[in-house]
Design a binder for these strands. Sequence first.
DNA 1: TTCTACAGACCGGCGCGTCGGTTTGTGGCG
DNA 2: CGCCACAAACCGACGCGCCGGTCTGTAGAA
Lengths: 176, 176
Amino acid sequence: MVDDIIRASDSSKGGFYFHFPNKQAIFLALIDALVPKLTTAVERAIASEPDPVAQMGAALRTLLDLFAKHRKLTKILLVEAVGLGHGFDDQLMRTRGSFARFIQGYLDRAVAAGAIAEQDTEIVAWAWLGAINETVVRWLVMGEPKRLEDVYPQLRTLLLRSVGADETPTKASPIQ
Amino acid sequence: MVDDIIRASDSSKGGFYFHFPNKQAIFLALIDALVPKLTTAVERAIASEPDPVAQMGAALRTLLDLFAKHRKLTKILLVEAVGLGHGFDDQLMRTRGSFARFIQGYLDRAVAAGAIAEQDTEIVAWAWLGAINETVVRWLVMGEPKRLEDVYPQLRTLLLRSVGADETPTKASPIQ
DNA sequence: TTCTACAGACCGGCGCGTCGGTTTGTGGCG
DNA sequence: CGCCACAAACCGACGCGCCGGTCTGTAGAA
Protein backbone atom coordinates (compact mmCIF):
# COMPACT_ATOMS: atom_id res chain seq x y z
CA MET A 1 0.00 0.00 0.00
CA VAL A 2 2.59 2.53 1.07
CA ASP A 3 4.95 0.92 -1.39
CA ASP A 4 2.35 1.44 -4.09
CA ILE A 5 2.23 5.12 -3.26
CA ILE A 6 6.01 5.22 -3.28
CA ARG A 7 6.19 3.59 -6.67
CA ALA A 8 3.38 5.64 -8.16
CA SER A 9 4.84 8.89 -6.87
CA ASP A 10 8.33 7.90 -7.90
CA SER A 11 9.51 8.53 -4.39
CA SER A 12 10.79 6.50 -1.45
CA LYS A 13 9.91 5.35 2.02
CA GLY A 14 12.06 8.04 3.55
CA GLY A 15 10.46 10.74 1.47
CA PHE A 16 7.01 9.54 2.31
CA TYR A 17 7.57 9.36 6.03
CA PHE A 18 9.28 12.72 5.95
CA HIS A 19 6.01 14.29 4.80
CA PHE A 20 3.48 12.06 6.55
CA PRO A 21 3.64 10.59 10.05
CA ASN A 22 1.85 7.42 8.97
CA LYS A 23 -0.21 5.85 6.27
CA GLN A 24 -3.62 7.18 7.14
CA ALA A 25 -2.26 10.70 7.25
CA ILE A 26 -1.99 10.81 3.48
CA PHE A 27 -5.59 9.73 3.15
CA LEU A 28 -6.73 12.31 5.65
CA ALA A 29 -4.68 14.95 3.86
CA LEU A 30 -6.28 13.89 0.61
CA ILE A 31 -9.72 14.12 2.13
CA ASP A 32 -8.97 17.47 3.73
CA ALA A 33 -7.79 18.73 0.36
CA LEU A 34 -10.57 17.37 -1.79
CA VAL A 35 -13.69 17.64 0.31
CA PRO A 36 -13.65 21.45 0.37
CA LYS A 37 -13.09 21.55 -3.39
CA LEU A 38 -16.01 19.24 -3.93
CA THR A 39 -18.36 20.98 -1.54
CA THR A 40 -17.55 24.44 -2.85
CA ALA A 41 -18.08 23.26 -6.41
CA VAL A 42 -21.43 21.83 -5.46
CA GLU A 43 -22.32 24.92 -3.46
CA ARG A 44 -21.48 27.17 -6.35
CA ALA A 45 -23.63 25.06 -8.65
CA ILE A 46 -26.46 25.30 -6.16
CA ALA A 47 -26.05 29.05 -5.79
CA SER A 48 -26.30 29.48 -9.55
CA GLU A 49 -29.82 28.06 -9.62
CA PRO A 50 -32.90 29.79 -8.36
CA ASP A 51 -35.32 27.14 -7.14
CA PRO A 52 -34.54 24.15 -4.93
CA VAL A 53 -35.44 21.53 -7.52
CA ALA A 54 -33.08 22.96 -10.10
CA GLN A 55 -30.45 23.31 -7.38
CA MET A 56 -30.67 19.61 -6.64
CA GLY A 57 -30.21 18.83 -10.29
CA ALA A 58 -27.22 21.10 -10.60
CA ALA A 59 -25.65 19.65 -7.48
CA LEU A 60 -25.98 16.09 -8.74
CA ARG A 61 -24.73 17.11 -12.14
CA THR A 62 -21.52 18.70 -10.85
CA LEU A 63 -20.98 15.81 -8.47
CA LEU A 64 -21.18 13.22 -11.21
CA ASP A 65 -19.09 15.33 -13.56
CA LEU A 66 -16.37 15.72 -10.97
CA PHE A 67 -16.36 12.01 -10.21
CA ALA A 68 -16.23 11.18 -13.89
CA LYS A 69 -13.42 13.62 -14.47
CA HIS A 70 -11.28 12.24 -11.64
CA ARG A 71 -11.99 8.58 -11.82
CA LYS A 72 -8.78 7.36 -10.17
CA LEU A 73 -9.11 9.76 -7.29
CA THR A 74 -12.73 8.82 -6.84
CA LYS A 75 -11.82 5.18 -6.77
CA ILE A 76 -9.26 5.78 -4.08
CA LEU A 77 -11.73 7.64 -1.92
CA LEU A 78 -14.79 5.49 -2.48
CA VAL A 79 -13.37 2.03 -2.99
CA GLU A 80 -9.79 1.63 -1.89
CA ALA A 81 -10.14 3.68 1.27
CA VAL A 82 -12.79 1.41 2.76
CA GLY A 83 -11.71 -1.52 4.81
CA LEU A 84 -8.30 -0.32 5.90
CA GLY A 85 -9.40 -1.15 9.42
CA HIS A 86 -7.67 -0.13 12.63
CA GLY A 87 -10.00 2.70 13.48
CA PHE A 88 -9.45 4.31 10.13
CA ASP A 89 -12.92 3.47 8.93
CA ASP A 90 -14.19 5.76 11.65
CA GLN A 91 -12.63 8.72 9.91
CA LEU A 92 -14.16 7.64 6.65
CA MET A 93 -17.55 7.25 8.25
CA ARG A 94 -17.24 10.68 9.81
CA THR A 95 -16.59 12.16 6.38
CA ARG A 96 -19.64 10.36 5.05
CA GLY A 97 -21.57 11.75 7.97
CA SER A 98 -20.56 15.29 7.18
CA PHE A 99 -21.66 14.77 3.59
CA ALA A 100 -24.98 13.44 4.77
CA ARG A 101 -25.42 16.49 6.96
CA PHE A 102 -24.50 18.66 4.02
CA ILE A 103 -27.27 17.09 1.96
CA GLN A 104 -29.65 17.26 4.86
CA GLY A 105 -29.03 20.98 5.23
CA TYR A 106 -30.18 21.67 1.71
CA LEU A 107 -33.12 19.33 2.11
CA ASP A 108 -34.18 21.22 5.21
CA ARG A 109 -33.94 24.45 3.31
CA ALA A 110 -36.05 22.96 0.52
CA VAL A 111 -38.63 21.96 3.12
CA ALA A 112 -38.57 25.44 4.64
CA ALA A 113 -38.99 26.94 1.18
CA GLY A 114 -42.03 24.77 0.65
CA ALA A 115 -40.48 23.04 -2.36
CA ILE A 116 -40.95 19.63 -0.79
CA ALA A 117 -43.20 18.34 1.93
CA GLU A 118 -42.13 17.95 5.53
CA GLN A 119 -40.32 14.68 6.11
CA ASP A 120 -37.40 13.09 7.96
CA THR A 121 -34.60 14.70 6.01
CA GLU A 122 -31.91 12.77 7.85
CA ILE A 123 -33.16 9.47 6.55
CA VAL A 124 -33.53 10.95 3.08
CA ALA A 125 -30.02 12.36 3.14
CA TRP A 126 -28.49 9.01 4.00
CA ALA A 127 -30.60 7.24 1.45
CA TRP A 128 -29.50 9.68 -1.22
CA LEU A 129 -25.90 9.30 -0.17
CA GLY A 130 -26.20 5.55 -0.42
CA ALA A 131 -27.95 5.64 -3.76
CA ILE A 132 -25.38 7.94 -5.32
CA ASN A 133 -22.48 6.13 -3.73
CA GLU A 134 -23.65 2.75 -4.94
CA THR A 135 -24.15 4.06 -8.44
CA VAL A 136 -20.69 5.57 -8.56
CA VAL A 137 -19.06 2.51 -7.05
CA ARG A 138 -20.78 0.31 -9.59
CA TRP A 139 -19.41 2.51 -12.32
CA LEU A 140 -15.95 2.32 -10.76
CA VAL A 141 -15.68 -1.41 -10.28
CA MET A 142 -17.89 -2.83 -13.01
CA GLY A 143 -17.39 -0.07 -15.54
CA GLU A 144 -21.10 0.23 -16.02
CA PRO A 145 -22.45 2.52 -17.21
CA LYS A 146 -19.56 3.36 -19.50
CA ARG A 147 -20.07 7.05 -18.93
CA LEU A 148 -21.15 8.00 -15.45
CA GLU A 149 -22.94 11.08 -16.71
CA ASP A 150 -25.37 8.84 -18.59
CA VAL A 151 -27.19 7.97 -15.40
CA TYR A 152 -27.68 11.61 -14.50
CA PRO A 153 -31.20 12.14 -15.85
CA GLN A 154 -32.51 8.88 -14.43
CA LEU A 155 -30.88 9.41 -11.07
CA ARG A 156 -32.07 12.97 -10.96
CA THR A 157 -35.72 12.14 -11.47
CA LEU A 158 -35.38 9.22 -9.10
CA LEU A 159 -34.01 11.35 -6.28
CA LEU A 160 -36.40 14.22 -6.88
CA ARG A 161 -39.38 11.92 -6.98
CA SER A 162 -38.25 10.27 -3.78
CA VAL A 163 -38.84 13.46 -1.82
CA GLY A 164 -42.04 14.28 -3.64
CA ALA A 165 -40.62 17.13 -5.68
CA ASP A 166 -42.54 17.63 -8.88
CA GLU A 167 -40.26 17.16 -11.81
CA THR A 168 -39.85 20.45 -13.65
CA PRO A 169 -38.55 19.57 -17.11
CA THR A 170 -35.56 21.87 -17.63
CA LYS A 171 -33.53 22.06 -20.81
CA ALA A 172 -30.54 19.79 -20.75
CA SER A 173 -27.60 21.63 -19.27
CA PRO A 174 -24.25 21.26 -21.08
CA ILE A 175 -21.62 19.06 -19.52
CA GLN A 176 -19.51 22.18 -18.81
CA MET B 1 -9.37 -12.48 11.79
CA VAL B 2 -9.11 -16.25 11.59
CA ASP B 3 -7.95 -16.22 15.18
CA ASP B 4 -11.05 -14.23 16.07
CA ILE B 5 -13.23 -16.89 14.52
CA ILE B 6 -11.24 -19.53 16.35
CA ARG B 7 -11.74 -17.80 19.65
CA ALA B 8 -15.40 -17.03 19.05
CA SER B 9 -16.17 -20.55 17.94
CA ASP B 10 -14.10 -22.04 20.75
CA SER B 11 -12.15 -24.02 18.21
CA SER B 12 -8.62 -24.11 16.83
CA LYS B 13 -6.57 -23.37 13.76
CA GLY B 14 -6.44 -27.00 12.84
CA GLY B 15 -10.15 -27.44 13.23
CA PHE B 16 -10.83 -24.40 11.14
CA TYR B 17 -8.57 -25.41 8.29
CA PHE B 18 -9.97 -28.90 8.39
CA HIS B 19 -13.37 -27.54 7.42
CA PHE B 20 -12.35 -24.62 5.23
CA PRO B 21 -9.53 -24.43 2.71
CA ASN B 22 -8.87 -20.78 3.52
CA LYS B 23 -10.27 -17.70 5.16
CA GLN B 24 -12.58 -16.48 2.45
CA ALA B 25 -14.19 -19.90 2.21
CA ILE B 26 -16.02 -19.39 5.47
CA PHE B 27 -17.42 -16.12 4.20
CA LEU B 28 -18.51 -17.69 0.97
CA ALA B 29 -20.09 -20.56 2.89
CA LEU B 30 -21.89 -18.03 5.05
CA ILE B 31 -23.15 -16.18 2.02
CA ASP B 32 -24.21 -19.38 0.31
CA ALA B 33 -26.11 -20.35 3.42
CA LEU B 34 -27.78 -17.03 4.15
CA VAL B 35 -28.60 -15.53 0.77
CA PRO B 36 -31.16 -18.24 -0.10
CA LYS B 37 -32.81 -17.86 3.31
CA LEU B 38 -33.07 -14.13 2.83
CA THR B 39 -34.32 -14.26 -0.73
CA THR B 40 -36.91 -16.92 -0.01
CA ALA B 41 -38.16 -14.97 3.00
CA VAL B 42 -38.51 -11.87 0.85
CA GLU B 43 -40.09 -13.85 -1.95
CA ARG B 44 -42.64 -15.35 0.40
CA ALA B 45 -43.47 -11.91 1.74
CA ILE B 46 -43.92 -10.69 -1.81
CA ALA B 47 -46.09 -13.63 -2.75
CA SER B 48 -48.38 -12.94 0.19
CA GLU B 49 -49.34 -9.54 -1.16
CA PRO B 50 -51.56 -8.87 -4.13
CA ASP B 51 -50.44 -5.64 -5.76
CA PRO B 52 -46.86 -4.60 -6.58
CA VAL B 53 -46.82 -1.60 -4.26
CA ALA B 54 -47.81 -3.65 -1.25
CA GLN B 55 -45.30 -6.28 -2.32
CA MET B 56 -42.53 -3.74 -2.23
CA GLY B 57 -43.57 -2.71 1.25
CA ALA B 58 -43.68 -6.27 2.48
CA ALA B 59 -40.29 -7.01 0.95
CA LEU B 60 -38.64 -4.04 2.63
CA ARG B 61 -40.37 -4.87 5.88
CA THR B 62 -39.09 -8.44 6.03
CA LEU B 63 -35.65 -7.33 4.94
CA LEU B 64 -35.35 -4.79 7.73
CA ASP B 65 -36.85 -7.18 10.26
CA LEU B 66 -34.36 -9.87 9.35
CA PHE B 67 -31.45 -7.48 9.54
CA ALA B 68 -32.65 -6.17 12.87
CA LYS B 69 -33.12 -9.68 14.21
CA HIS B 70 -29.62 -10.79 13.21
CA ARG B 71 -27.57 -7.72 13.83
CA LYS B 72 -24.23 -9.44 14.32
CA LEU B 73 -24.59 -11.53 11.20
CA THR B 74 -25.66 -8.50 9.22
CA LYS B 75 -22.64 -6.59 10.43
CA ILE B 76 -20.36 -9.37 9.32
CA LEU B 77 -21.87 -9.45 5.86
CA LEU B 78 -22.31 -5.73 5.29
CA VAL B 79 -19.43 -4.19 7.20
CA GLU B 80 -16.70 -6.62 8.14
CA ALA B 81 -16.72 -8.49 4.85
CA VAL B 82 -15.83 -5.44 2.80
CA GLY B 83 -12.21 -4.61 2.26
CA LEU B 84 -10.69 -8.02 2.74
CA GLY B 85 -8.99 -7.44 -0.57
CA HIS B 86 -7.16 -9.99 -2.67
CA GLY B 87 -9.92 -10.53 -5.18
CA PHE B 88 -12.39 -11.30 -2.44
CA ASP B 89 -14.28 -8.07 -2.96
CA ASP B 90 -15.16 -9.40 -6.38
CA GLN B 91 -17.21 -12.16 -4.81
CA LEU B 92 -18.92 -9.64 -2.57
CA MET B 93 -19.67 -7.40 -5.51
CA ARG B 94 -21.08 -10.34 -7.41
CA THR B 95 -23.44 -11.07 -4.54
CA ARG B 96 -24.51 -7.44 -4.53
CA GLY B 97 -25.05 -7.72 -8.24
CA SER B 98 -27.34 -10.71 -7.87
CA PHE B 99 -29.33 -8.80 -5.29
CA ALA B 100 -29.60 -5.86 -7.63
CA ARG B 101 -30.85 -8.17 -10.36
CA PHE B 102 -33.31 -9.65 -7.90
CA ILE B 103 -34.72 -6.21 -7.20
CA GLN B 104 -34.67 -5.35 -10.88
CA GLY B 105 -36.71 -8.43 -11.69
CA TYR B 106 -39.54 -7.33 -9.45
CA LEU B 107 -39.32 -3.78 -10.73
CA ASP B 108 -39.64 -5.06 -14.28
CA ARG B 109 -42.68 -7.06 -13.26
CA ALA B 110 -44.16 -3.96 -11.64
CA VAL B 111 -43.58 -2.07 -14.88
CA ALA B 112 -45.18 -4.87 -16.90
CA ALA B 113 -48.14 -4.86 -14.52
CA GLY B 114 -48.54 -1.14 -15.10
CA ALA B 115 -48.01 -0.34 -11.44
CA ILE B 116 -45.14 2.01 -12.22
CA ALA B 117 -44.11 3.84 -15.34
CA GLU B 118 -41.51 2.57 -17.75
CA GLN B 119 -37.96 3.48 -16.62
CA ASP B 120 -34.42 2.17 -16.38
CA THR B 121 -34.99 -0.43 -13.71
CA GLU B 122 -31.33 -1.35 -13.49
CA ILE B 123 -30.38 2.10 -12.29
CA VAL B 124 -33.30 2.08 -9.90
CA ALA B 125 -32.37 -1.31 -8.52
CA TRP B 126 -28.82 -0.24 -7.75
CA ALA B 127 -29.99 3.01 -6.24
CA TRP B 128 -32.42 1.16 -4.01
CA LEU B 129 -29.71 -1.28 -3.02
CA GLY B 130 -27.41 1.59 -2.12
CA ALA B 131 -30.08 3.47 -0.20
CA ILE B 132 -31.06 0.46 1.87
CA ASN B 133 -27.48 -0.63 2.36
CA GLU B 134 -26.40 2.80 3.55
CA THR B 135 -29.30 2.99 5.96
CA VAL B 136 -28.54 -0.41 7.43
CA VAL B 137 -24.82 0.28 7.66
CA ARG B 138 -25.49 3.54 9.43
CA TRP B 139 -27.62 1.67 11.91
CA LEU B 140 -24.88 -0.91 12.35
CA VAL B 141 -21.93 1.39 12.93
CA MET B 142 -23.50 4.50 14.43
CA GLY B 143 -26.37 2.79 16.20
CA GLU B 144 -28.81 5.23 14.72
CA PRO B 145 -31.67 4.83 14.51
CA LYS B 146 -31.85 2.77 17.67
CA ARG B 147 -34.39 0.43 16.12
CA LEU B 148 -33.87 -0.25 12.46
CA GLU B 149 -37.57 -0.87 11.93
CA ASP B 150 -38.24 2.76 12.80
CA VAL B 151 -37.04 3.90 9.41
CA TYR B 152 -39.36 1.53 7.62
CA PRO B 153 -42.26 3.86 6.88
CA GLN B 154 -40.02 6.70 5.76
CA LEU B 155 -37.84 4.48 3.64
CA ARG B 156 -40.87 2.79 2.16
CA THR B 157 -42.51 5.99 0.97
CA LEU B 158 -39.14 7.26 -0.21
CA LEU B 159 -38.48 4.21 -2.36
CA LEU B 160 -42.01 4.00 -3.68
CA ARG B 161 -42.08 7.67 -4.56
CA SER B 162 -38.74 7.31 -6.32
CA VAL B 163 -40.29 5.07 -8.96
CA GLY B 164 -43.47 7.10 -9.20
CA ALA B 165 -45.67 4.60 -7.42
CA ASP B 166 -48.59 6.29 -5.77
CA GLU B 167 -48.54 5.64 -2.09
CA THR B 168 -51.52 3.54 -1.12
CA PRO B 169 -51.97 3.99 2.62
CA THR B 170 -52.27 0.45 3.98
CA LYS B 171 -52.92 -0.43 7.60
CA ALA B 172 -49.75 -0.96 9.55
CA SER B 173 -48.72 -4.59 9.24
CA PRO B 174 -47.61 -6.32 12.45
CA ILE B 175 -43.95 -7.01 12.92
CA GLN B 176 -44.61 -10.75 12.59
C1' DT C 1 28.99 22.44 8.70
C1' DT C 2 24.35 22.35 9.33
C1' DC C 3 19.78 21.65 7.81
C1' DT C 4 16.36 20.06 4.52
C1' DA C 5 14.66 16.60 1.66
C1' DC C 6 15.04 12.42 0.36
C1' DA C 7 16.89 7.36 -0.60
C1' DG C 8 16.51 2.59 0.50
C1' DA C 9 18.09 -1.24 3.47
C1' DC C 10 16.28 -3.11 7.37
C1' DC C 11 13.25 -4.40 11.30
C1' DG C 12 9.35 -6.42 13.67
C1' DG C 13 4.63 -7.50 14.29
C1' DC C 14 0.66 -9.48 12.49
C1' DG C 15 -1.97 -12.84 10.38
C1' DC C 16 -2.64 -16.63 7.14
C1' DG C 17 -1.76 -21.14 6.38
C1' DT C 18 0.92 -25.65 7.50
C1' DC C 19 2.19 -29.70 9.74
C1' DG C 20 3.20 -33.18 13.13
C1' DG C 21 0.79 -34.88 16.67
C1' DT C 22 -3.44 -36.10 19.76
C1' DT C 23 -8.18 -37.20 20.67
C1' DT C 24 -12.57 -39.17 19.37
C1' DG C 25 -15.48 -42.09 16.87
C1' DT C 26 -16.32 -46.56 14.46
C1' DG C 27 -16.30 -50.97 12.60
C1' DG C 28 -14.25 -55.66 12.64
C1' DC C 29 -12.70 -59.70 15.11
C1' DG C 30 -11.83 -63.25 18.48
C1' DC D 1 -17.26 -57.61 25.66
C1' DG D 2 -12.55 -56.23 25.21
C1' DC D 3 -9.26 -55.12 21.99
C1' DC D 4 -7.27 -53.41 17.90
C1' DA D 5 -6.93 -50.70 13.58
C1' DC D 6 -8.01 -47.07 11.06
C1' DA D 7 -10.02 -42.78 9.92
C1' DA D 8 -12.17 -38.53 10.91
C1' DA D 9 -11.92 -34.49 13.58
C1' DC D 10 -9.30 -31.44 16.07
C1' DC D 11 -5.22 -29.07 18.33
C1' DG D 12 -1.65 -25.41 18.58
C1' DA D 13 3.24 -24.29 17.79
C1' DC D 14 5.74 -22.81 14.08
C1' DG D 15 6.97 -20.83 9.31
C1' DC D 16 6.86 -17.27 6.43
C1' DG D 17 5.44 -13.51 3.58
C1' DC D 18 3.61 -8.98 3.68
C1' DC D 19 3.59 -4.37 4.96
C1' DG D 20 3.82 -0.38 7.98
C1' DG D 21 7.25 1.99 10.11
C1' DT D 22 12.40 3.11 11.43
C1' DC D 23 17.16 4.12 10.86
C1' DT D 24 21.35 5.18 8.72
C1' DG D 25 23.24 7.47 5.06
C1' DT D 26 23.72 11.28 1.64
C1' DA D 27 23.29 14.98 -1.93
C1' DG D 28 22.53 19.70 -2.31
C1' DA D 29 21.46 24.23 -0.58
C1' DA D 30 22.48 27.98 2.71
